[in-house]
Simulated assay, not measured.
Amino acid sequence: MNALNALTVAIEAAVRKRDEARRVLQDAQAAQQGARAQLDQIEGYARETEARWGVKADAAMKPEVLYHHYQFMGRLGHAVGIQAGVVDHHSQRVEAARQALLQAELRLASLRRLVDKRRQELERAEMRRDQKQTDERAALQYRSAGQEH
């Protein structure tokens, strides 16, 4: 029974570790979604800005204004690139968290299988002891009955 108690403690620790891995995954997914939403917002703003300037393309613009527009659009493009990198980083974190959760779940499942196996072994040993005691009692009764005759 002492071995089962130790395994029960190990299972409890594995459950806590699995739950923590699940929480980390959920946090990573939430961060990834936030980063993705921010990327979508920057890209949308860049499209809107470009569309507004596209309407004015026929209008005569001062070179300084066009220069600033292109510079601004370049900065927006740079921001999109940076945010895409952030989204990629979060995707990697999500995948790492998924793998950690999978490993924690596998560890927990293997510990539970081990506990089940040990319980079955203990039950079989108990049944063998009970059977041995029953056989010994029957043999004693048989000998006692044989000596009375």
Rank of each mutant, 00 (worst) to 15 (best):
L106F: 02
A104R: 00
A104S: 05
Q83R: 10
A100C: 07
R112D: 08
R98D: 12
L108E: 13
K117V: 11
G85K: 13
R112F: 01
Q99W: 06
L106H: 08
L114K: 09
S91R: 15
K117I: 07
D88T: 12
A84V: 06
L111D: 06
A100H: 08
R112E: 15
Q103K: 06
R98G: 11
G81D: 13
V87S: 01
V80F: 01
R118F: 03
D116G: 15
S91H: 10
R93H: 03
K117D: 14
L102W: 04
E105Q: 12
H89L: 10
R107Q: 14
Q120G: 08
L114D: 06
G85D: 12
I82W: 12
H90C: 11
A104N: 01
E121A: 14
H90M: 13
R119Y: 04
A100P: 01
S110T: 05
D88P: 00
D116R: 15
D88N: 12
L106K: 07
E105V: 00
Q83S: 08
Q83T: 10
Q99G: 04
R119T: 11
A84N: 09
Q120C: 05
V86D: 05
Q120K: 12
Q99M: 11
R107P: 00
Q83N: 07
R113V: 13
A96I: 01
R98M: 09
Q103W: 05
L111E: 05
V86A: 02
V80K: 05
R113D: 15
V86K: 02
A97W: 09
L106Y: 03
V115C: 05
V94G: 03
R119E: 13
V94R: 04
A84P: 09
Q83L: 05
A109F: 01
D88R: 12
L102M: 05
R93T: 04
R93M: 11
G85Y: 10
L111I: 01
L122C: 10
R113Y: 09
D116V: 08
